[in-house]
């Protein structure tokens, strides 16, 4: 027996057949939770928001309009809910005058931490360490690929606020990760025996 197609699932759902909902849930729940979690790094809230997506799908099953794939539709619904949540909870307040904070204070002893770790993991850690407002905006930019303008519109913020937070996020990431990129580069080139007299790599 082959798996039912999206279309068959939707038809069954519209008839009020719960197995179709179960099927959709089991197929897409983890993916959707991860989509939300990447923007909003709180496991419970991510699950709650995805639960609401499925609840809404069930409630309005008879007037569901799915024009793309079901997965894309659910993803869009989950992202919209996340945006609404960020806006309603005022997780980012509109504050145009806020200047990027002093960035030097976040310089921790990162080089030591970095030596043993892999690049991608370090980037994840650096992203997770961003201040919450920066983190949310960065997530929307990176994973939902929304422009600053679109983020501002969706969250009801001024574009200046979004730009400030985005600039801050990028700078914090760069400052945290630059020593690592540098070290990594040196290690690589040293291992290849390509440089002997690179004076800047002696630290």
């Amino acid at each position: 027996m082959t798996d039912p197609t999206d279309e068959e699932l939707l038809t069954a759902l519209q008839r009020g057949e719960e197995w179709a909902l179960d099927r959709l849930f089991r197929t897409h729940y983890t993916y959707l939770c991860q989509v939300v979690f990447r923007v909003l790094p709180d496991r419970n809230t991510a699950e709650d928001l995805v639960q609401e997506v499925f609840l809404a799908v069930w409630r309005k099953r008879d007037r569901l309009r799915v024009e793309q794939s079901v997965r894309a539709y659910l993803r869009r619904a989950a992202v919209n809910r996340t945006l609404n949540y960020i806006r309603d909870q005022k997780l980012i307040v509109d504050d145009e005058t806020a200047l990027p904070a002093d960035l030097s204070s976040s310089e921790v002893d990162i080089v030591q931490q970095l030596e043993a770790a892999e690049l991608a993991q370090e980037i994840e850690i650096a992203i997770a360490a961003l201040p919450e407002r920066c983190r949310l905006i960065f997530g929307l930019s990176r994973f939902e690929q929304l422009s600053n303008k679109a983020i501002a519109k969706e969250l009801g913020l001024s574009i200046k606020t979004v730009e400030n937070q985005m600039t801050r996020a990028l700078k914090l990431l760069r400052d945290r990760l630059t020593p690592f990129f540098f070290w990594w580069f040196c290690l690589l080139t040293t291992a290849l025996g390509l440089i002997v007299s690179q004076p800047t790599c002696t630290t």
């Binding site: 939770c33 991510a46 994840e124 992203i127 994973f143």
Partner: peptide, 11 residues
């Protein structure tokens, strides 16, 4: 490097 972020979240 951010690509895999959140993929270890297994609800």
């Amino acid at each position: 490097g951010a690509e895999g972020l959140g993929q270890d979240f297994e609800p």
